[in-house]
Write a protein that binds this DNA or RNA. Structure first.
Lengths: 97, 97
DNA sequence: AGAATTTACAACCATATGGTTGTATGTTAG
DNA sequence: CTAACATACAACCATATGGTTGTAAATTCT
């Protein structure tokens, strides 16, 4: 997921499709690159679970997935806890002295 | 920062140095790769602000930076808010009908 | 002073990534 | 039915990325 979010275009696609779903071609018009390039970005995001695609006739509605974002949040939260643990241990050490 | 966190070794270095600071060579012994490779990873993390280096004699103490993690948290939080906005708008639409 | 240690950095290599164009396939519109 | 459209995907290209080895500089140890 970090790898998928490492690209600015992809982050923007996530942001945009969180607000409201969009077809691949709608997304494609929004960026200064070919349709195929945007389509590949969407594929990467889908692979990482950051967006889902929902067929509707000949088009695919792309929808941002807030759950995936929350999973990253949780990972980062875990890191934060690790850090708090370090502080706690330093405190304990100081109190011993 | 996402790009820096996109590599598993680098995520592990962040995790490890959040717990307690370590020299570059201490880190290097922890991974199945050359010293130079680890040193480059640390440089990338430092460039992204995810760790800081503190000279101590001939060695450099590497320390994970919790503030950087919090900044990502905030970004993801903003995305979450965007999504909540969408839900709110959908609700408003339903209530109109 | 000289040897060993720790870091930095350059040069190089293989593969991944982000882009392109072209072609095929499924779906809607006339 | 045929034309147009939306998507998918392959092939290709330039650059980025993650790794290597080798060398140099700063610091510590004897």
């Amino acid at each position: 997921m970090f790898r998928a979010l490492a690209d600015a275009t992809r982050r923007d696609i996530v942001r945009r499709t969180l607000t409201e779903e969009a077809t691949v071609s709608q997304l494609a018009t929004a960026y200064e690159m070919s349709f195929a390039a945007v389509q590949k970005h969407v594929a990467v995001l889908e692979g990482a679970g950051l967006v889902t695609k929902h067929p509707k006739g000949r088009e695919r509605l792309v929808r941002g997935n807030p759950d995936a974002l929350r999973r990253i949040q949780q990972l980062l939260d875990a890191y934060e806890q690790i850090w708090r643990g370090r502080i706690a241990r330093l405190d304990a050490l100081l109190n011993e002295e």
